[in-house]
Write a protein that binds this DNA or RNA. Structure first.
Length: 205
DNA sequence: CGTGTTTGACCGGCGC
DNA sequence: GCGCCGGTCAAACACG
């Protein structure tokens, strides 16, 4: 994998009941997007409709592709939380650029349910990592959003999730877990190492 | 029977 | 040009 601008603060955070701990990467020019419908759902405490996170794009000179152990070793990366992906098939065709957003979570489970339905379409063992990387695709028709889930070999409690693309449809189901996640999600923006905690979903609109 | 997972093959980009 | 490596395909399989 390339060098994603992921900020990763290894906080010891063993805060108990919640299995998820977000440590997300974002640039100083945060441009979070919200795709879910505004209405809440009838789950009482729910009401969170969460779209894909989008950061600002920032080209970054990738160092060495298969350099050191990616993820675990290289923790000093700066920049936005989004990288452009070229999905060009033919030379004549315009190359489609889709946003990427990578973040890391502390989770016991590999699959964190973010409210969308994902279909697994591949799994590969990557170099310098004992754990395989899983490839998922959104099952909604016409929605090309993909995501990769990878666990760090160094710290198996850390799961790196990389979203690619934006959902063109509202979220399918509410997720109390994800809402709970958001409350503890921390974004390390920029060089100042300023962390910011999401307290509510108003952040995403 | 519909939907999602598993898993080896295949392919393209990139470095040497 | 060749080989490595990451990403995707697709057929078989599992499960409700």
């Amino acid at each position: 994998m390339e060098n994603y601008p992921i900020f990763f603060g290894t906080q010891p955070s063993s805060s108990t009941s919640n299995p998820y701990h977000f440590v997300a990467g974002a640039s100083s020019h945060d441009h979070l997007h919200h795709h879910g419908q505004a209405a809440g759902n009838n789950t009482g405490g729910g009401g969170l409709n969460q779209g894909l996170f989008l950061g600002s794009k920032q080209e970054e000179p990738s160092e060495s592709k298969d350099g050191g152990d990616d993820g675990a070793g290289s923790s000093s990366q700066g920049g936005g939380g989004e990288a452009d992906v070229v999905v060009g098939k033919k030379k004549g065709e315009k190359r489609e650029r889709r946003p990427r957003f990578a973040f890391q979570t502390r989770s016991q489970v590999d699959i964190l349910d973010d409210g969308y339905r994902w279909r697994k379409y591949g799994q590969k063992a990557v170099k310098n990592n004992n754990f395989p990387r899983s490839y998922y695709r959104c099952t909604h028709q016409g929605c090309n959003v993909k995501k990769q889930v990878q666990r760090l070999s160094r710290d198996e409690g850390v799961v790196v999730t990389t979203y690619e693309g934006t959902h063109t449809h509202p979220i399918e189901k509410s997720n109390d877990n994800f809402e709970h996640i958001l409350t503890q999600m921390q974004v390390y923006s920029g060089i100042n190492n300023v962390s910011q905690t999401f307290g509510n979903q108003h952040m995403f609109q």
